[in-house]
């Protein structure tokens, strides 16, 4: 093993096993396995569409409810054979709108703070804290609504003569809003931090204050990205289940009173599974029709958010 041992040309050396047949077999096997994994993700989507589609068709067949009646009916009463989805849509809309009112401004302000104001050390603590918050299961927020939010609402409003129901829309809006704040702030913060430094420096060089740079240069530059995060947050609020089940209850009705209970698309699905409906009955099948409506509305919002975000990326490339 002296240092200057002459290298024997590879082809003549007996020390090399050379490529084995096993090696190409491994390559092909691994490739096939990876393709299979990727296929499973596609099959999942196909499965969702297939399940929802087939069972929804069966629902319309068995319940003798027309599509138009389903979409425009204002009464939802499976025992009476009435399947109007509007009360669910109204409930979903209330919760989504109310939680957005809370989450979007707070989320945006904290995104601005994290990206523009926070010293790096504060940021290093706050960002993981927000992420931890995002990891709390939704059932916890639902329980918090029952334990804390509704009693507080009762304590405030009942002395004023406004009755507050145990399950009510307002507390659902509050807990769902708090729940989606981390989503808004972390996605918006990513977008705002990505705004080129040169833009900020240009603003400061013209004599603008930090406030002006943040609100008039950085925010407009990242606006479509911020919008995309808003849309995604609304989509999350629409799809939220457990927090709403425990906070807003399961009574399908169209009401403007935020202290009354309501039923959303997601909670209806839970109530049907938890109920007595037998497999294959129209009531049981209606959960798939409502699930289809839920799936389509969140899908539309997610696609919209992606389109908005893509436009933002194009501006900066």
């Amino acid at each position: 093993m002296s240092a200057l041992t002459r290298h024997i040309p590879a082809s003549h050396s007996g020390l090399w096993a050379g490529p084995s047949r096993f090696r190409s077999l491994t390559e092909a096997g691994v490739g096939a396995f990876l393709l299979l994994c990727a296929t499973i993700t596609v099959l999942t989507t196909a499965g969702i569409i297939l399940v929802l589609g087939l069972e929804t068709l069966e629902f319309f067949e068995k319940s003798k409810v027309g599509l138009l009646h389903f979409l425009t009916g204002t009464v939802l009463n499976p025992e009476g054979g009435k399947y109007g989805i509007l009360p669910l849509i109204w409930g979903t809309f209330q919760v989504a709108a109310g939680s957005s009112v809370i989450a979007l401004p707070i989320g945006l302000l904290s995104a601005i703070y994290l990206s523009e104001y926070a010293p790096s050390r504060v940021r290093a603590v706050l960002k993981p804290a927000l992420e931890l918050l995002a990891g709390i299961p939704t059932i916890v927020y639902g329980y918090l609504a029952l334990l804390l939010v509704t009693p507080v609402l009762k304590a405030i409003f009942e002395p004023m003569g406004i009755p507050v129901s145990t399950f009510n829309v307002a507390s659902a809006c509050i807990v769902v809003g708090v729940m989606i704040i981390p989503l808004v702030s972390s996605l918006s913060e990513d977008v705002l931090s990505a705004v080129p430094r040169g833009l900020r420096e240009a603003g400061y060089a013209l004599g603008a204050t930090k406030f002006e740079v943040s609100t008039r240069i950085v925010l407009p530059a990242g606006l479509s990205g911020v919008m995309a995060s808003f849309i995604l947050a609304v989509s999350r609020a629409i799809g939220e289940t457990m927090a709403v089940v425990l906070a807003a209850g399961m009574r399908p009705q169209i009401t403007l009173n935020p202290f009354d209970s309501c039923e959303t698309m997601t909670t209806y699905i839970v109530s049907v599974t938890g109920g007595e409906a037998s497999y294959g009955s129209p009531e049981y099948l209606s959960l798939f029709a409502v699930g289809m409506a839920l799936f389509l509305s969140t899908l539309a919002l997610n696609l919209l958010s992606e389109i908005v975000l893509r436009r933002y990326r194009e501006v900066y490339r």
Binding site: L287, T298, L299
Partner: peptide
């Protein structure tokens, strides 16, 4: 972005 309850239905 699909709501978790839809996975439940699936």
């Amino acid at each position: 972005g699909v709501p978790s309850i839809v996975y439940g239905i699936l």
